[in-house]
């Protein structure tokens, strides 16, 4: 278990970087507003960053542990299906997580 000083530093670093990203642009973004490269990054970043974060969240799923792969694949299908159907973020997250918890706890207990 990580110790308190380390955890506090991590919270401090994350909070400082986040606030800087939210506050500093008001001062420095004005001259960049017209930059086509910035506009291009702005419009293309979100989907890419979220794709990378999805892969990161799934990094420990390997075919060598089938008991982990199937609940994940099925829960992903539930999440994507719910989201395409209802477009409700909360519903998709809760539905997918509930499916995963149920599958891990019952069918794939190994």
């Amino acid at each position: 278990m990580p110790d308190a000083p380390y955890l506090l530093s991590a919270v401090g670093v994350a909070a400082a970087v986040t606030w800087a990203l939210r506050a500093l642009p008001f001062a420095v973004l004005a001259p960049l507003r017209s930059s086509p490269a910035v506009a291009y990054l702005n419009s293309h970043m979100p989907v890419g960053v979220l794709t990378i974060l999805s892969v990161y969240a799934l990094r420990d799923v390997t075919p060598r542990v089938p008991g982990r792969v199937w609940p994940t694949v099925l829960a992903l299908a539930v999440t994507v299906g719910l989201h395409l159907w209802r477009r409700n973020l909360l519903l998709s997250v809760l539905g997918g997580t509930a499916a995963h918890v149920a599958l891990v706890g019952t069918v794939f207990t190994g």
């Binding site: 979220l50 974060l53 969240a57 829960a75 998709s92």
Partner: peptide, 12 residues
Amino acid sequence: FAVTALFVALAL
């Protein structure tokens, strides 16, 4: 899995 579901739904 909540984290995974969150990122996948946001990516969609």
